[in-house]
């Protein structure tokens, strides 16, 4: 039996897992983008806060995912289920997102900002019309890293009760069923690639052609 036949023979199950997987990933993505882009913008204005927040996100990122899922599961108010999975994955997305927004906004050429100020732009106009548009390429790099990351780590959420593609991999391992493992892995990878591709298309729409010579296309 090959992974392909495994998928065909268990199509409805695989489909259910895949749908669960992608709905988890999309929920996490929406929440992460709104939280962490906002956080990144806030800390770009307060340097002292920035180093604390970025160090915190680095530490979070270094904790093995399986233990973080376990830890949150035991906390009051979380337990098994989607809520815990979402919170943990959002925390994982913090590092790449906050950092890319912060660096993107901060690394805008000082002479451009100076020219903007000299033309009479206010601080918020400089943020909206100069800093954010010029930071888009770097912000998108962060978004695309976190999309791929979330899709992969979401497989771990199977241990706290998520019925997603991680379950195929996990059960494949316990049963010694290579086809099952490979089927799960392939679908997760394809999903990550697809999401990354979609993000790339959105990036092309949003990032100004004037910035196209920068990497990250």
């Amino acid at each position: 039996m090959s992974p392909f036949y495994f998928i065909l023979n268990n199509f409805s199950l695989v489909l259910e897992y895949a749908m669960n997987h992608i709905s988890l990933v999309l929920t996490v993505l929406v929440l992460s983008l709104s939280f962490w882009i906002f956080t990144g913008l806030i800390i770009s204005r307060y340097d002292r806060l920035a180093s604390a927040v970025i160090s915190f996100s680095n530490i979070l990122f270094c904790i093995p995912s399986i233990s973080l899922f376990g830890l949150f599961m035991t906390m009051p108010g979380f337990g098994l289920g989607r809520k815990t999975a979402v919170v943990v994955l959002v925390l994982y997305a913090m590092m790449p997102l906050v950092r890319s927004v912060y660096l993107g906004v901060k690394s805008v050429d000082a002479s451009v900002v100076d020219a903007g100020r000299g033309m009479g732009m206010t601080t918020s106009q400089i943020l909206l019309k100069i800093r954010i548009p010029m930071a888009w390429p770097m912000i998108f790099a962060g978004i695309r890293v976190s999309v791929v990351l979330i899709t992969g780590i979401a497989t771990m959420a199977t241990f706290i009760g998520e019925k997603n593609l991680g379950r195929l991999i996990h059960q494949g391992i316990t049963r010694g069923n290579a086809d099952m493992i490979i089927a799960g892995a392939i679908i997760v990878s394809l999903m990550a690639l697809l999401l990354d591709y979609i993000m790339g298309r959105i990036q092309k729409k949003i990032v100004s052609p004037g910035l196209r010579f920068q990497p990250g296309d």
Partner: peptide, 15 residues
């Protein structure tokens, strides 16, 4: 806004 400002680095908005 009531004064023109030109700098050596020019500082055109690249986007």
């Amino acid at each position: 806004q009531s004064m023109g400002y030109v700098i050596q680095q020019i500082g055109l908005l690249p986007h």
